[in-house]
Design a protein around this nucleic acid. Structure first.
Length: 285
DNA sequence: AAAAACATCAACCGCGCAATT
DNA sequence: AAATTGCGCGGTTGATGTTTT
């Protein structure tokens, strides 16, 4: 194999043009993974700093971060994680190169949420692109449009929350956490707060969510108020980053309890749900 | 049962900002 | 102040797996 790591200073052997000519591409073999794993075990992750400057080292780093690193989780993104992704993305988007607003920051947050460790940027990105962006295209809607974002925030996310709650009910898990988190509450910032009605039947929920979406999408999005996902301590956002650390800490308690309950892997992008989304988008026009 | 179409995800690429010289 | 280098990011590709015809 041509991928190699060596001890001496210019260790990333991808560095020289000669060697780059013979770089192996494509899927990693078990043997390669094993070599890389051993290397990190011996040298530690900190060693990246001294070798990462060499072209191609990025390949090793990515393999480690996205695959080999302990606690990395792959596949089967839970509803809770999907909800988090949508929530955070609605707040921060996927803007470039700022320390507080990128997908990597999102990963950072996921990793520091006690019960949602190990999701990688690649995975989140893939979810966003293969699911969300794809559905937006199917709906003939610009994923970055205000209309789509509002629909996600005020219709889709409450619907996901509803599903999570339904799962919790059926499994008898996390009921307390959800019931305390998913309920109407006043917004101390003075604005209205969109809420999912946890006890609604599906049909009932649809109409309630619809009207809620209509009202809130109109009345809230311009003012900067946000749909409140988890509201142990209710919160509002006037500008994306303001007070986020504190808010996250409070909200994360809710996430953690629910995420810890262990259900997930539910596909929200069913025909029924997409039709529903389509209806919402049509109504907004 | 086989082929085609589609979906997913790991891996790689290249751009542009930030830091350094 | 300008040029260079490094780094982090989102975008894209291609392999693989799954579903549909």
């Amino acid at each position: 194999m041509e991928r190699s790591l060596s001890e001496n200073g210019s260790s990333g052997t991808y560095g020289s043009s000669e060697e780059e000519m013979s770089i192996t591409k494509g899927p990693w073999t078990e043997e390669e993974d094993s070599v890389l794993f051993d290397y990190i075990t011996v040298h530690g992750e900190g060693h990246w700093n001294s070798v990462a400057r060499y072209t191609g080292m990025q390949t090793f780093i990515l393999r480690w971060l996205n695959y080999l690193r302990p606690n990395v989780r792959r596949g089967n993104i839970t509803l809770q994680e999907q909800l988090m992704i949508l929530d955070l993305h609605s707040r921060w988007g996927n803007r470039y190169y700022t320390s507080s607003s990128s997908l990597s920051s999102l990963v950072f947050i996921l990793e520091h949420a006690e019960h949602l460790p190990g999701r990688t940027d690649n995975e989140i990105k893939n979810y966003w692109r293969t699911r969300v962006v794809k559905q937006a295209k199917q709906l003939k809607c610009d994923v970055n449009s205000k209309q789509f974002r509002d629909t996600l925030r005020f219709v889709w996310m409450p619907r996901m929350l509803e599903r999570i709650q339904a799962q919790a009910s059926s499994s008898g898990q996390a009921q307390t956490a959800l019931m305390s988190n998913v309920q109407a509450h006043s917004d101390p910032c003075g604005g209205a707060t969109a809420t999912a009605t946890a006890s609604a039947s599906d049909a009932g929920f649809l109409s309630e969510a619809s009207s809620a979406a209509d009202v809130h999408a109109q009345s809230l999005s311009d003012s900067g108020a946000s749909y409140s996902l988890m509201g142990g301590g209710s919160w509002c956002s006037h500008g994306a980053e303001e007070g986020y650390g504190r808010v996250w800490e409070e909200r994360n308690n809710g996430y953690s309890e629910i995420a810890g309950s262990g259900f997930g892997g539910v596909d929200m992008w069913t025909e029924e749900n997409i039709c529903f989304l389509q209806q919402q988008l049509a109504d907004d026009l």
